[in-house]
Amino acid sequence: MKKYAFNDITLMQYIFLIAGIQLGIGLLQLPRELAERAGTDGWIAIVIGFVIATCSSLMIIQVMKRHPEGTLFDLLKRYVGKWAGQAAAVVTALYFAFFSYTIMVRAVLFVRSWILPKTPDIVMLILLAVPSYLVARGGVRVLGRYAELVFYITLWMPFFYLLSLRESNWLYLLPLFKEGLQPILLAVKPALFAFLGFEVAFLLYPFLKSKQYASQGIIVANTLALLVYLHVTVTCNVFYSPDTITHFNEPSVNVLKTMEFRFIERLEIVFLAFFVIIISTTWLPGMYFTVFSINWMFGREDHRKLLQWLMLLFVTSMFFVKPSFNKTDKWIEVVNLLGICFGYLFPYVLWLYVWIHDRVQWRRRGT
């Protein structure tokens, strides 16, 4: 019997889970970060980041095919030893805990600066923590359904950005490679950070029903993130001048302030509320896989009580941590550095080890 069959997910849920994690904070700030490094050529860095992220994603799938019914921890336990699985579970739990906490706090700061400036941070975190627990306690299957639902209810949002093109200047994008290749290569770094999230495939793979389509699914997830990032970045680049876009912290939200309708005055407020829903598909899987990793170490299956403690820890931390954009920027830098090691470097190292291990075992059996 499959170990994780009780909570398996469909291919579509698998795709939207990965794409949802990728479309986190980068959706709001990526256009500015790219413009600061490469100007209007920043969209080229997104394409380069997509290629690198897709290669690393496919390497994860190739590694997980060696032990299809288990997670990364089960694979390491089989190939290296029990201690390796335990160590990986600890590191992964810490990574996803810090990752989800950073994204939640960042979402609180966005809401406070745009919608509720006088509401205490701890109150907003509680308002986010309660529904987050109700969703995450259902496990991977519920998270997959939630990610799929969020995709469908936010499918209308990119079309509103097309309205800004009436006042845009496409000549801002020309000529290509204005300052050479070096600025674009420097902009690849934030682009790689924006595509982080595919590393969750290390833990999602055994839950997938149709594992033969895992590679195609992760390519589709990366492509969805690519299309969204390109759409938002190009729209901001042709709407703002190359010098103006860097003056806005979240240009993808500011561009909406120019749109007005008779039935609504501040469209960006409505969009920001939906942006928070999109960002929730980033921190929710992080929360779940934090407690999943801890439960794996102790051989437990019920994650609800541990999830309650995690939520309580997040909320009480607000009494001691006074979050700010500058402080969370430093946290995001740490998360990104860990993500580069975990998502972009570790799959190749693990694949090489597994390949050598299997070759050695094959030769031993041959003799």
Rank of each mutant, 00 (worst) to 15 (best):
M1R: 13
K3E: 15
A5E: 14
D8K: 12
L11W: 05
I18C: 01
Q22L: 08
L23S: 05
I25T: 09
L27H: 09
L27N: 02
L27Y: 07
L28G: 01
Q29T: 15
R32Y: 11
E36A: 13
E36R: 13
R37K: 15
A38M: 02
G39L: 06
T40E: 03
G42E: 02
W43Y: 12
G49P: 03
G49L: 00
I52P: 08
I52Y: 09
T54F: 04
T54C: 01
S56G: 08
L58W: 10
Q62T: 14
P68H: 00
E69N: 13
F73V: 04
F73E: 01
D74A: 02
L75A: 10
L76A: 04
G81N: 01
K82D: 13
K82S: 12
W83L: 11
G85L: 01
A87P: 06
A93D: 00
Y95S: 02
F96P: 01
S100C: 04
S100F: 01
S100K: 00
I103N: 00
A107P: 05
W114Q: 10
K118C: 10
T119F: 01
T119I: 05
L128C: 05
L128Y: 06
L128P: 02
S132M: 02
A136R: 00
G139R: 03
L143I: 07
G144I: 03
R145Q: 13
F151G: 04
I153C: 09
W156S: 11
F159C: 09
L162S: 07
S164M: 13
W170Y: 15
L176Q: 08
E179Y: 10
E179D: 13
P183V: 11
I184Y: 06
L186R: 14
L186Q: 15
A187H: 06
V188P: 04
F198E: 03
V200K: 08
L203V: 06
Y205L: 06
K211E: 07
K211V: 04
A214D: 11
Q216P: 07
G217F: 02
I218Y: 03
I219S: 05
A225N: 04
L226T: 03
T233S: 10
C236P: 04
S241Q: 13
S241W: 09
T244Y: 11
T244G: 14
N249I: 14
E250D: 12
P251D: 02
V253E: 03
L256G: 03
M259A: 14
F261S: 13
F261V: 09
F261R: 12
I264S: 03
E265A: 10
E268W: 00
I269N: 12
I269D: 11
F271L: 06
L272T: 09
I278N: 15
I279N: 09
F289S: 00
T290S: 13
S293A: 09
I294L: 14
G299L: 05
R300P: 08
E301A: 10
H303S: 15
Q308E: 12
W309K: 12
M311F: 10
M311L: 11
L312M: 12
L313C: 15
L313H: 06
M318A: 14
F319H: 11
V321C: 08
S324T: 13
S324I: 06
F325Y: 12
K330S: 15
I332G: 00
L337M: 14
G339M: 07
I340L: 12
C341A: 15
G343E: 00
L345F: 07
W351P: 06
V354P: 05
V360P: 05
V360G: 06
R363P: 07
T367G: 15
